[in-house]
Amino acid sequence: MRFSAVVVLVQCAAMFIYAASLIVSQFTEHTSTLESQSPAANYVNIGTATFLAIIFGYIAYAAVSTLKGNPRATGAIVLVEAILAGVAVYMFRGGVPLLGAATLASAVLALIGIFHPATREYNEARYAQRKARRTQ
C-alpha cells in the first residue's frame, strides 16, 4: 500500500510540474489554438492548471495520509489511476509512446499495490478496529 502511495506522489509531482508549466505559458507566450470566439478561450491554460491542482492536490493528500498509516480515499486514487490508464492509450495514439508507457506503467503499479492482498487485509483489519470502537 505504501508503495502505491509513493507511486501516486510521483504522479502528483509530475502533474504539479505540468500545471506550473501551464501557468507560466499562460502569462508568457500563450496563444490560444482553440476555435472559439469567446474571450474565455484565452484562459484555458490557467483553468486547466487550477483543475489539475485541485484534483491532484486531493490525491496527494490521500497518498500522504496513506504513508502516515491512515489510508483514505482509496476509491479516488483508483478512479484517477483508471483515468490515467485511459490517458496513456491516447498518448500511444497521439505519438508519444514513451510517455504513454511511463503513464500506463505507473498507473498499473499503483493499482497493483492498491489491490494487493496485503493491502486488503490491512484495510479489513482497520475497518474491524473502527467497527469495534463504535460498538463500545
Rank of each mutant, 00 (worst) to 15 (best):
G57F: 06
P71I: 06
G75H: 07
A53I: 15
R120C: 03
A60T: 05
A49N: 07
A49T: 07
G86V: 06
A85H: 05
S65T: 15
E124G: 01
A53E: 06
Q136D: 13
H116A: 02
V108S: 04
I23M: 12
M91D: 13
Y90E: 12
Y58M: 15
A82N: 06
T135Y: 05
V8L: 07
V6M: 12
A128I: 02
L109E: 05
T74I: 13
A63K: 04
L98V: 15
V44P: 01
I112C: 11
L22E: 08
G100P: 05
G75W: 09
Y18K: 04
F16K: 05
I54V: 14
A132W: 08
G47V: 12
Q11F: 00
A13Q: 00
S25Q: 14
T31I: 13
T74P: 02
H30D: 11
G100E: 11
P71R: 05
V108H: 04
L111F: 07
Q37R: 08
N45E: 13
L98N: 06
R2N: 05
P97I: 11
F16L: 03
E35P: 01
T28E: 07
L79D: 01
M15S: 02
T33L: 12
T50F: 15
L67N: 06
I77M: 13
S4D: 12
L79Y: 05
A110L: 07
Y90H: 11
Y90S: 12
T74D: 10
L52A: 12
A101R: 02
G86K: 10
A60P: 04
S21K: 11
P39I: 14
L111I: 04
I46P: 01
I114F: 02
A53Y: 02
A125W: 06
G113P: 04
S106Y: 06
R133I: 07
A41R: 14
N42A: 15
I112L: 13
R130Q: 11
F16W: 10
G95L: 06
F115A: 03
Y43N: 15
G69M: 03
T119P: 04
A40Y: 13
A62G: 01
I112Q: 08
T48V: 15
V10H: 00
T31H: 11
S32R: 03
I112R: 09
A49C: 10
P71T: 03
A76K: 02
V44A: 14
N45T: 04
Q37S: 14
I17R: 05
A76Y: 08
N42M: 13
V64N: 00
I23F: 14
A73S: 14
V8G: 01
V87F: 09
